[in-house]
């Protein structure tokens, strides 16, 4: 798979592990006293698993498997938007996960990631395996 896809997928695996571990703490806190309120971790749990794990994995795999025949546009241009999506998505998850005053910045960064990903993939959504990137 392309290097950028590998980074997307590896980062999603890191989010999966961290998100599931946080989820285990949240679930344990419903049954046994932990000495602190784990409920404050709920937002970062959801953020890491919904955006960091699932959405990120889908993006990485899509960049990997969608048609990438180059006809008349430099492939590097397309790679830049994919890398930008990767950087913005992970920065967004971090900011939104920290919450508080950073939540809005995190959400805006995630929207930027989605837009960059869409710009990257749009031309690759084409019939017969041909695209204009």
């Amino acid at each position: 798979m392309p290097r950028v896809s590998a980074w997307f997928v590896r980062a999603s695996l890191v989010h999966l592990m961290a998100g599931f571990c946080i989820g285990a703490v949240l679930l344990a806190g419903k049954g046994i006293p932990l000495g602190f309120d784990p409920w404050s971790l709920r937002a970062v749990h959801i953020e890491m698993l919904l955006v960091g794990w699932m959405i990120q994995l889908v993006m990485g795999v899509a960049i990997w498997i969608f048609p990438r025949f180059v006809l008349h546009r430099a492939p590097q241009r397309s790679a830049v938007t994919a890398w930008l999506a990767f950087a913005l998505l992970n920065a967004g998850v971090l900011l939104a996960g920290l919450g508080g005053s950073l939540l809005a910045a995190g959400r805006a960064t995630e929207i930027g990631a989605a837009a960059s990903f869409a710009v990257h993939l749009w031309g690759r959504v084409s019939p017969a395996g041909l695209s204009d990137i």
Binding site: M1, P2, A6, L13, M17, A24, L26, L27, K30
Partner: peptide, 25 residues
Amino acid sequence: LAVAGFAQALAGIGFAVSTWPRVKV
């Protein structure tokens, strides 16, 4: 519930650890 959470966390780690070497550039 702690056991349930721990089991799922281990599953997440197990999947990540076994998938990681197959993410090849």
